[in-house]
Design a binder for these strands. Structure first.
Length: 807
DNA sequence: TATGATATCCTTTTT
DNA sequence: GGATATCATA
């Protein structure tokens, strides 16, 4: 402590304290832009400088990219020892630990990681096998229930023992839910597979059932650091709890105001009650924002102040006042995109900035479409981040299917995917028969087919199928040999060629097929890259000689990789498009938040209860605080939804921003649309609106050749020769819908009478029957507290939005 | 069994 | 509007 470390230079008082006091539990409340990453990296670097062994540090981040960046920054401070820090997402770190311990838990070491599609397919199979109605038992719904059970560490046994869950499932008319969950887990294990949630659940089971294993990791990881703690779920929370039991050197960093992942089971309580969990925890508050202008920080604060559930902190900026937040309004979503893109082009050009200083953020992925079209039309380079776009491609999933089956022959989902891909004459009936045989023998489909190959049959069609199956078996065997004999890249290439996948696309001479071939090549390149990387690590002595690159390791890495983690190789000077969720942790000079409309942002389903609405508000806060110098918000009056136009009103969040920070030329009050505007006179108002967006209007093909005025030939679904242009030249506008929207708008906006009173009995679509306990008036609505009894308890809802019926 | 046509969901957010 | 699922037909 005698000499000051270089690492501490330039830190403010709060940051300094948070870096230096690394022993014992600490909670770092880090407001947006407060130098959180800097504190985390400096803290770790400082620890190493003070003699803490890097191997004893476990740092968990939210994305792989964040981990990579942190490691680089630490390396810059303390050099190559940083390589020995265990760092990554919860999922990737524990996937590796599980691999080391898989066998004692009844999983193969080469277990496969199931992504959500695999999980859903398996659930579908189970539902079918049990002859349950796929009307009531929707795979997606079942999958999400299983997922939240796992995130809350509820095993199938516990699930079925719970009377609360049983009644809940009966209410939802899925009484077999527990059985399906049990069967699902059984089948995953049979298949030697873990889904995303298993990676956390099974880690907990490992630590619970094998205390000596837990003890080993407790000794190994004496210092724990968790980033984005406000977004951890119960399973993650418990892992940390367990690991910290012996040496409570646990440092969590987060911001309750940025908790936006409750749909994934994240519990904001984890951060709110850290002090209760670790009573002698030290608390550090990083409140100075170094990222944004005063205007942006203050505006964001004024919005988040509408939330009741907050931790006390005061975020401020000492930067410039900066420009006011601009709010733009367009008539249609299409026009909104035009407006935004022209605006950002002007900004970038006049200021001489880079495209990469601009981000366009939206609430839902589908909003990117309109923006992409305009960007492409104006030849502005852009980069779009979209979930796991890699697996969205069939050719990639097929390639991975082969590789998975070779690594883990028990993986029935992979087997089903590829047995007839590319088509080799083994149809659904044959596959079902194989599945049935496997079921009856209690083996995997691969084992079933493997045993079947030697058998003879007299039936000629059966014989033909048997021959084809035998060919498939031979193919997989050959590829397995290739895996052992060849390097990673060559093996991948063998899979692509011998399987016939590559050939099947080359035969087709379409641009889509070409892109598929490109994707396959890209996949093979990642194999090569991975191999080179591992070899470099071995040469540098960071990795043992015998620990060569394996296809298993590559595959799990790939499964746990998100689009976020992919580095762009062909130049970075591009406008960024992404959801607000993916923007967390990032910053841009210019930020555009589009679609600031009621029912979109905040989203319709989130507005059902107060918690949901508050989370949307935090999301909006996250969006706003991404901006360094200028934030621009926009909304449209009409938006294409499910193929027809729907009206929307400006988001309540726009009017929640303190007006002194806003620059807009229209009234922001959500209640602005009055009855006269669209009342009985609705049609003419509509016509006026139609006229103003005749761009789309004409594009949709007016029969009189008006479309020829448009120089831009856009793909037009109504222009196809088979289908005559519809009589009224506005096929996309469904007036019946408009009237509907219309009446509901006028009815609720003008005055806000409340249909509910204390003591009323109501029915809710998800929570069931309840009694109203309290009614509080809001600006344009009422907040009601409803007691639902057993599983749900008391909920605070917004009268107009909650799906309630009075009984 | 493979292909093309029609029906149906969809739109919250992701490791 | 679009992707995916299911169905009808050769």
């Amino acid at each position: 402590m005698a000499t000051t470390s270089k690492i501490l230079e330039g830190l403010n008082a709060a940051q300094h304290d948070a870096v230096v006091n690394y022993e014992g539990p600490s909670l770092i409340i880090a407001g947006a832009g407060s130098g959180k990453t800097r504190v985390l990296t400096s803290r770790i670097a400082y620890m190493i400088e003070q003699g803490v062994r890097p191997e004893s540090i476990l740092a968990l981040t939210f994305t792989n990219k964040a981990a990579k960046e942190m490691r680089e920054r630490i390396e810059a401070m303390v050099g190559p020892q940083s390589r020995y820090i265990r760092m990554g997402t919860f999922h990737s770190v524990f996937a590796r630990i599980l691999r080391e311990n898989a066998e004692r838990m009844g999983y193969p070491q080469a277990y496969t990681i199931y992504e959500s599609n695999d999980a859903k397919n398996l659930i579908k199979t189970i539902i079918k096998e049990r002859n349950l109605s796929d009307e009531k038992y929707k795979p997606g719904h079942i999958a999400s229930r299983i997922s939240s059970a796992k995130n809350s560490l509820i095993t199938p046994g516990a699930y079925m023992a719970s009377t609360t869950l049983a009644t809940e499932d009966r209410q939802r008319q899925i009484p077999e839910m527990g059985t399906i969950y049990l069967e699902y887990c059984k089948r995953c294990k049979q298949n030697g597979a873990m889904d995303f949630d298993d990676l956390l659940l099974q880690t907990n089971i490992l630590f619970r059932d094998f205390p000596q294993v837990l003890a080993e990791y407790q000794e190994r990881f004496r210092y724990l650091l968790v980033d984005e703690y406000q977004d951890t779920n119960f399973a993650q929370y418990t892992i940390i709890r367990r690991l910290a039991l012996k040496y409570p050197n646990v440092c969590v960093v987060g911001d309750d105001a940025q908790s936006i992942y409750s749909f994934r089971g994240a519990k904001i309580e984890n951060i709110l009650s850290f002090q209760r969990d670790y009573p002698d925890a030290k608390i550090y508050k990083l409140e100075q924002n170094y990222r944004s202008t005063k205007t942006i920080v203050d505006a964001a604060n004024s919005v988040i102040n509408h939330n009741a559930r907050r931790m006390k902190k005061r975020c401020f900026s000492e930067g410039e006042q900066g420009e006011k937040i601009r709010i733009l309004k367009a008539y249609t979503d299409r026009e909104e995109a035009d407006m935004i893109v022209s605006d950002l082009r002007d900004k970038v050009r006049t200021a001489g900035d880079e495209w990469s200083e601009v981000a366009i953020l939206y609430r839902t992925n589908n909003q990117s479409q309109a923006l992409e079209d305009v960007l492409r039309r104006k030849a502005i380079p852009y980069r779009i981040y979209k979930g796991n776009s890699f697996y969205d491609h069939k050719e990639i999933r097929d390639m991975l299917g082969y590789i998975r089956l070779i690594i883990n022959p028990r993986d029935d989902e992979a087997f089903k995917r590829i047995i007839n891909t590319p088509a080799r004459g083994i149809g659904a009936t044959s596959v079902e028969r194989i599945a049935a045989i496997a079921q009856s023998r209690g083996t995997s489909m691969w084992d079933a087919v493997d045993a079947l190959v030697g058998m003879q049959s007299d039936d000629p069609t059966e014989k033909a199928v048997a021959r084809k199956v035998a060919e498939f078996v031979a193919l997989i065997r050959e590829l397995s040999l290739a895996r052992e004999a060849k390097g990673l890249y060559d093996f991948g290439l063998e899979v692509a060629t011998r399987s016939g996948i590559l050939q099947s696309y080359r035969m087709l001479n379409t641009p889509e097929a070409q892109s598929a071939v490109d994707n396959i090549e890209e996949l093979l390149n990642t194999l090569q890259l991975f191999n080179e990387q591992v070899e470099a690590e071995i040469r540098a002595g960071e990795r043992e000689e015998f620990d060569k690159a394996t296809i298993e390791e590559w595959l799990s890495g790939l499964m746990l990789m998100s689009d976020m983690d992919n580095e762009e190789e062909d130049g970075n000077n591009k406008v960024t498009l992404m959801t607000v969720h993916s923007a967390k942790g990032l910053e841009y000079k210019y930020v555009y938040i589009v679609g600031c409309e009621e029912n979109l942002f905040p989203s319709m389903q989130a507005m059902e209860d107060i918690d949901g609405l508050e989370e949307e508000r935090r999301l909006f806060y996250v969006a706003l605080t991404r901006a360094k110098s200028l934030a621009t918000l926009s909304c449209a009056e009409m938006r294409f939804k499910w193929g027809n136009m729907e009206f929307s009103r400006p988001s309540r969040f726009l009017s929640e921003i303190d007006p002194q920070y806003v620059d807009s030329d229209f009234d922001l009050k959500p209640a602005r649309r009055s009855a006269t505007n669209l009342g009985e006179d609705g049609e003419s108002a509509l016509d006026a609106l139609r006229r103003r967006f005749d761009y789309r209007y004409q594009q949709k093909g007016t029969p009189q050749g008006a479309s020829t005025q448009r120089p831009q030939p856009t793909r037009s679904p109504y222009a196809s020769p088979q289908r005559p242009a519809p009589e009224p030249p506005r096929p996309t506008i469904d007036t019946s819908k408009m009237r509907r929207v219309n009446t509901s708008t006028t009815g609720t906006v003008t005055s806000a009478p409340c249909d509910y009173a204390v003591g009323d009995v109501v029915q809710h679509t998800t929570f069931g029957r309840g009694v109203i306990r309290d009614v509080t008036p809001l600006a344009t609505d009422h907040k009601i507290t409803v007691e639902f009894g057993a599983p749900h308890g008391s909920k605070t809802l917004i009268a107009r939005l909650a799906k309630l019926t009075k009984l």
